[in-house]
Each structure stands twice: as C-alpha cells, then as structure tokens.
Design a protein around this nucleic acid. Structure first.
Lengths: 205, 205
DNA sequence: GTCTATATAGTGATAGAC
DNA sequence: GTCTATCACTATATAGAC
C-alpha cells in the first residue's frame, strides 16, 4: 500500500496509463481502479479528465524542452556537439521510452495540444534564442567549410526523425524481432551509434 | 448526391474518418451521418466496426508493401537506386499524406494489428525474399568498397524514419510554420531532396 | 477527503417493420 | 436494402451523505 497522498498517486497512475494507452483510450474509471479509489475522487482533485491530462502533458513537454536546451550548450567541435546531443536524447528517452509516442500522438491528432505548444514554447523568446544560437553555430561551421550547406532546420528535423522513430517503433521491433528486454536495449544502443554516425557522415561538406 | 452503392460509400467515408481521427475516435454513428444513412446500415454491411476497419487497414498495408516491393527492383548504381526508392515513397505518400500516421498509430497502439502484419506480411516468403535481395545488394556494394559497412536493416530503418516522420509531422509544420498548402508541398519536396542527400552522403564509405 | 448514487450522453450492435 | 427502435454498456461529471 502506498503512503503517498491520493492526489499524487492519481496523477502518477494517470501518467502511466496515458503513456501506455493514450488519452482517448484511458478512462477515469480505469485510473481510479488502478489507484484503488473511486472514480469520483479523480474528478474531485482534477475536476475534468482533460485537466488532469493537461497537467501531465505540460510537465512532459517542459522536461523535453529542457533536455533540448541543455543539449545545445557547450563549445566542442561540431561533431562532438552532435554526438553529445544525440546521446543526451537517447539517454533521456531510454529512461522514458514511451514519451515520444505519447507526445507525438497527442500533438499530431489534437490541434488544441499544438496550440498549447505554440503559445507556451515556440513563441517564448527563451526558446527562440536557443534556436538562433544553434542556427548561428551551424552557419559558422558552414562558412568555415566544415559542414555541408544544409538548412539548420533540416538538421534538427532529421535528428528528431531518427531519434523519435527509434522509440516509436519499439513495440513493433519487440513484437516482430526481439525476444528479450536485453535485445531491445541493445537495439536502442545500436541505433544511437548508427544514427550518430549517419548524421555526422551525412553532414560532411 | 453520390450515385455509388451505399456499401462503397460507407467504406470511403470510413476510410477518410479513420485516417483523420484514428479508429478509437471514429464512431459508426459519425460515419453514418457523413454518408447520409443510418448507423444501422453501417452494421448491416460490415457487421462490426472492427471488421470495417480491418478491411481498410489490410488494403492500405498491401498497397504500402507493393510500393516497397517495386522500389527495390532495378539494377542501377546504388545511389540511383536509393534516390529512386525514396522518390517513390514520397510520391506515393504525397497522394496520401495521412497514411503514415494512420498505419503507424494503429501498429504501435494495437498488438492485434501487429499480429496481423506479422502473420500476413513479415512471415510471407514473397516479402522475405525481397528483403534478402536488398540485403545481398547492400553486401555486394560493401564488398566492392562503395558503401559504408552498415547493417542493411539500419539502412531500411533510417530511410523509413526520415520518410515517415516527414508526413507524420505535417500537422505540426502546417500549424506552427506554414501558411499555405503550397508551402506545405514545398516543405515535402524540400525534405525529399535533403533526405536523399543525407542518406547517400551518410552511407559513403 | 472519500464515498455512494445518479444525471446525462454517447457507444456498438441487433431485432423487426417496411 | 434501409429504416426505427431499443438494448446493454461505458463514459464523464456532479450532488450530497458521512
């Protein structure tokens, strides 16, 4: 039996279920059952299911943006910088493998979530500045002839595609090809190495 | 007013709604409303919602495998081969931009769909042979020193990641950055070029 | 703070009239 | 082949007792 306050327990169980099943497929009744309380209590603390979801969603998006911000710091060579950034994404996501699918699915299928992302992150000067620093860095490398002439935005999208897809496809890999958890872990580590290699080699001038 | 038979009209509307909203978020009542018939008629023709969905899902998966099969034929240089394959995927998906999200989402969130994929495609000798031909081709190129020593499976996954993600992220791009349809089209064409460049450059020895 | 009970609305599916 | 009517179920949300 957990000793945590109910409000927190509800939220933790809700997060796990939203991650596993998505918003639509998770009911407040199921959350209550797994917590061991009544469905009314879920609504007592969070009023609506949407509200409960939003709190969890916001927290996860913030955490993701923090990782991205930190990954762009440092002044090593550009190759080391790319390697470190990709490594940080993979490490963060290995601790939370269902996060990419959860965030992606909600952003893609629900315009309200995109609106939230736009208002609270994309428009925020903090994040705009961070992207501009990345942009400047890329252009400097290109001026120096150390990097292929590729739009910085493309670099970002390509790294995101390769990283996110690795984790989104995990249920398929697990189901179709892997037998043990260790094999799945090994697949992730392998993709991390190959993606790093592909991107660095692919961005050579 | 459409002159097509009801059975077909129901299926077409259902496909559009499943593509736009996914299986869970689409009700047979909504399908009926948009067709202009009663909900009972949907069940008369297809008995269950699951059954209606499966017919559509199967058809789409088959079409996708056909494109993949055809993309692996030919005996040009490996670079031309990669370029042609990626080009075919993009052309097929530009005519059907919501397909990647639809198929991915259902495969990721529903074990039954993966089971279907496994039984009917992955296990089928036809497709196993096609993959082995691709594998042999890659290894030959590597023997000849024209290609980096990368697992053929990694090449497949990387191309899939980059291609699929381009289309899955479209609603976000549209919402956050693009204003017109033409800009979206241009984004897709741009990514097609950049992905082709990245993969070819990234696979150099 | 936690419960029981319930209002309200929506779902997939079927029976039976025409 | 298409409709109306309805069943059994589940959902979110709230009112009110303790």
């Amino acid at each position: 039996m957990s000793t945590e306050p109910m409000e927190l327990r509800i939220r933790e169980v809700a997060q796990r279920l939203f991650f596993e099943q998505g918003f639509a497929a998770t009911s407040t009744t199921q959350i209550a059952n797994e917590v061991g309380c009544t469905q009314a209590l879920v609504h007592y603390y969070y009023r609506t299911k949407e509200n409960l979801f939003r709190q969890i969603f916001i927290e996860q998006i913030e955490a993701a943006f923090n990782v991205i911000s930190r990954s762009l710091a440092g002044d090593q060579s550009f190759d080391s910088f790319l390697e470190k950034a990709i490594s940080m994404y993979f490490d963060a996501l290995m601790a939370n493998p269902r996060l990419p699918h959860f965030v992606l699915e909600e952003l893609v299928s629900n315009p309200e979530r995109r609106k939230y992302l736009r208002e609270n992150f994309v428009k925020k000067p903090t994040y705009a500045i961070i992207y501009m620093q990345f942009e400047a860095r890329v252009k400097a490398e290109q001026q120096a002839g150390r990097l292929a002439k590729v739009d910085p935005f493309d670099i970002m999208i390509s790294v995101a595609s390769l990283t996110v897809f690795t984790f989104v496809m995990l249920p398929m890999y697990q189901d179709l090809l892997a037998r043990t958890d260790e094999q799945v872990q090994e697949f992730i580590r392998h993709r991390k190495k190959e993606i790093t290699r592909l991107v660095i080699q692919g961005l050579k001038p």
